[in-house]
Design a protein around this nucleic acid. Structure first.
Length: 417
RNA sequence: GGAGACGUGGCUGAGUGGUUGAAAGCGCCGCACUCGAAAUGCGGUAUACCAGAAAUGGUAUCAGGGGUUCAAAUCCUCUCGUCUCCGCCA
């Protein structure tokens, strides 16, 4: 959520920023301000009446005063009802406003994304390369059929060395983040509706989440949990920045989004991901952003895969974020780069919604922290990338050096059994 | 799933429906005393919103929502959370 005071005082600037990511006919800042005006008037009116009532309630009133106060009470009630309605309408309008994109973020959608860094080369094969589904199946790493039997389409089951490889990736990430001083969390994988609102995933993604009969939803990313971790807290300034990383299985309905080229593990209902999350002082948040991007980049370089970093245009990054960089790995069978990490700075947008603050000693006030998140990393596209980029003519696959320490007997190559 | 207890400020903990935003203690901050420290004494010590240039004033907040009442931390009700006991438990 944005700050209404900031909107009122910087109307032109806010409007210019928001128009980078939304069409002009959808943006009605004047309407929001009008609601705020109405809200303020009602507050002033009802508070004046309440002050009157309080003055008369300090001690036992006379019968005449009691009668007067009775009608006053009715007036107050009426005003409060009107105020509540206005407040609700105002908050709805406010929560529909996306974050203001950072100054250097380009307007428009996907077409304006900009590749700012590339690592490695697209692999060249002097044989007919296979796709990861074929490789994973023939090497006995993934069992798609039995997963579909158990759970329906869109799931897979890691088997044997495949499961070892998946876990090796996670262990590699966990060690990396731990060495960097991030605190490891394994959160619950189910969360309340309120938490999903706070994280900004509701109402927009309601249909993309799995729901239980207890009105809990399965987390689609542990960002949903981490963003709520310090909800309604005032963090001691000496503890900032607070750096976390979390493991969770992530669950997404992905209803109707299957395409032929996204078979296998490119898009599924459940995948593993490690997520970095930072609560930072406002003045440090861009430094933290650079750090997280760098972390994700280092993880990728360690795997020695061909990847690129894209700066997303305003319309292609999620609404809560001021700036987002995607890290995308090359999938040879698709001929394109697919996201394995998304690093974003939400500034105070999420913190305001979740009321996560710190006491600023300079002002003596409780102020909102900045929140940032970045995958570090999601495995479901890495495993295909490793299989496809590192495949050999005989159908075997070379395991990235850095993962071997986590594999049985420091395994170097996966071959057919 | 059943039964019960509880939820007051940073913490502990009072609080007959009417100057209670809230006693007291602890903690914290400032000052005094001291060469310094401890001890002691004095003073201060919540948050949000509204109005205001500011000083300041107003309103709300005793888990949260709703209700009763001229007036609610205090009465009623629902929700949430914590704890205890019983049952169930791949």
């Amino acid at each position: 959520m944005l700050d209404i005071k900031f909107i009122r005082e910087n109307l032109t600037e806010v409007k210019t920023g928001l128009l980078k990511r939304m069409p002009a006919d959808k943006l009605n800042l004047e309407g929001v301000i009008a609601l705020d005006d109405k809200r303020r008037e009602l507050i002033a009116a009802s508070e004046e009446l309440k002050a009157e009532r309080n003055r008369n309630s300090k001690s036992k009133p006379t019968p005449e005063t009691i009668a007067e106060m009775k009608t006053l009470g009715e007036k107050i009630k009426k005003l409060e009802e009107e105020l509540n309605a206005t407040e609700t309408e105002f908050l709805e309008a406010m929560s529909e406003l996306p974050n203001i994109p950072a100054a250097d973020v380009l307007p428009g959608g996907k077409e304006n994304n900009e590749v700012i860094h590339t690592y490695g080369q697209k692999p060249k094969f002097d044989f007919e390369p296979k796709d990861h589904v074929e490789l994973a199946t023939s090497l006995g790493l993934i069992d798609y059929e039995r997963a579909a039997k158990m759970s329906g389409s869109g799931f897979w089951c890691y088997t044997g060395v495949g499961a070892q490889l998946e876990w090796a990736l996670l262990n590699y990430f966990i060690d990396f983040h731990t060495k960097n001083g991030y605190q490891f969390l394994i959160p619950p994988f189910l969360l309340t509706e309120k938490s999903a609102y706070t994280s900004g995933h509701l109402p927009k993604f309601r249909d993309d989440l799995f729901w239980t009969q207890d009105a809990l939803c399965l987390n689609a990313t542990s960002e949903m949990m981490l963003g709520n971790y310090h909800r309604d807290e005032i963090l001691p300034i000496e503890e900032l920045p607070k750096k976390y990383f979390a493991y969770s299985a992530c669950f997404r309905r992905e209803a109707g989004s299957y395409r032929q080229e996204e078979r296998g593990m490119i898009r599924g209902h459940q995948f593993n991901k490690i997520e970095m999350f930072i609560f930072s002082k406002p003045e440090e948040s861009w430094k933290m952003f650079a750090e997280m991007v760098n972390n994700a980049q280092k993880l990728m370089e360690g795997l020695n895969l061909n990847f690129q970093i894209s700066k997303l245009a305003a319309g292609d990054s999620s609404a809560a974020m001021a700036k987002t960089y995607d890290i995308e790995v090359y999938i040879p069978s698709m001929g394109i780069y697919k996201e394995v990490s998304s690093a974003s700075n939400a500034l105070d947008y999420q913190a305001r919604r979740g009321q996560v603050r710190y006491k600023n000693p300079a002002t003596g006030k409780n102020e909102f922290v900045h929140t940032l998140n970045a995958s570090g990393l999601a495995t479901s596209r890495l495993l295909p990338a490793i299989l496809e980029q590192n495949q050999q003519a005989d159908g075997s696959v070379i395991i990235p050096k850095i993962l071997r320490q986590y594999m049985p007997k420091r395994m170097k190559v996966i071959k057919k059994a």
